Amino acid sequence: MSTVLQPDYPIRTERLLLRPITPDDAPAMLAYKSDAESVRYVPYGPLTLADVEERIATRWSTTRFEKEGDAVCLALEERRTGRLVGDVVLFWRSESDRAGEVGYILDPRAAGHGYASEAVRALLHVGFDGLGLHRIAARIDERNAASIRVVERLGFRREARLVESEWFKGEWSTLLIYALLEDEWRSSIIEQ
């Protein structure tokens, strides 16, 4: 990629604003990032306020893609109320393979309203239209039924089931790999 991709923020969906995470988001993020059940399937344990503030100042502060390996984390803000309901991430995994990956976590109080699907759909636009990706994947613990429903609703196809492939948080985890190709995504948009 020869140019930097700086998405126009906030990214607007029907009910959400996807925007850069700010230090003011720390208390709201702590509400779900400190809860063991909420972070059960993400690659970190419950966080303290200091942990959240440090991550906001460092790894969650990137707002643009400059090179392979970059990741942009965005806050999910309810447009109607201004309430933070979760956050999402888009990873640029490979420039030569034009590959990316999505991740998401919601405050449990906001679960079940379709916010994750709405937000990931917006990330697909950034990845396919903005970064020119060919393939976007999602890696999901097999026990995470809610997350599986999100990607299946968006047209991702299950490509692999890696049985007890990772020692994750003190136990073996079976990992599901889902993916969506750019042409599959564009076909689904036409059908809508």
Rank of each mutant, 00 (worst) to 15 (best):
S2I: 08
S2E: 14
V4N: 09
L5G: 05
L5N: 07
Q6F: 09
Y9W: 10
I11Q: 09
R12F: 15
T13C: 02
T13I: 01
E14S: 11
T22C: 04
D25Q: 10
A26I: 04
A26S: 05
P27H: 10
M29F: 15
L30I: 03
Y32K: 01
E37H: 06
S38P: 02
S38D: 02
R40A: 11
P43L: 09
P43E: 10
P43H: 14
G45C: 15
T48S: 14
D51N: 13
D51S: 08
E53C: 03
E53K: 12
E53H: 01
A57F: 07
A57W: 14
R59S: 15
S61R: 07
R64T: 08
E66G: 04
E68T: 03
A75D: 05
A75R: 14
R80P: 05
G82E: 10
G82R: 09
R83Y: 13
R83N: 06
V85R: 15
V88F: 14
V88M: 08
V89S: 01
L90C: 12
L90G: 07
F91C: 08
F91N: 07
S94V: 09
S94F: 13
S96F: 11
D97P: 09
R98W: 13
A99C: 11
G103M: 02
G103P: 02
I105N: 04
L106Y: 07
D107N: 06
A110Y: 06
A111L: 02
G112W: 15
G112T: 06
A116E: 14
A116R: 12
A119I: 04
V120H: 06
V120R: 06
R121K: 10
A122Q: 06
L124Q: 01
H125N: 04
V126Y: 11
F128G: 14
G130K: 03
R135V: 02
A137P: 08
A138F: 09
D141V: 05
R143P: 11
A146W: 12
R149D: 11
R149V: 08
V150L: 04
V151P: 07
E152M: 03
E152A: 05
G155D: 02
F156W: 01
R158F: 06
A160R: 04
A160M: 04
R161Y: 06
L162S: 13
V163S: 12
E164A: 13
E164S: 07
E164W: 03
S165I: 00
E166W: 10
W167N: 01
G170P: 08
G170Y: 11
G170I: 08
G170K: 10
W172V: 05
T174I: 06
L175I: 15
A179Q: 02
E182D: 03
E184N: 00
W185S: 00
W185C: 00
W185G: 00
S187I: 01
S188D: 02
S188C: 02
E191N: 08
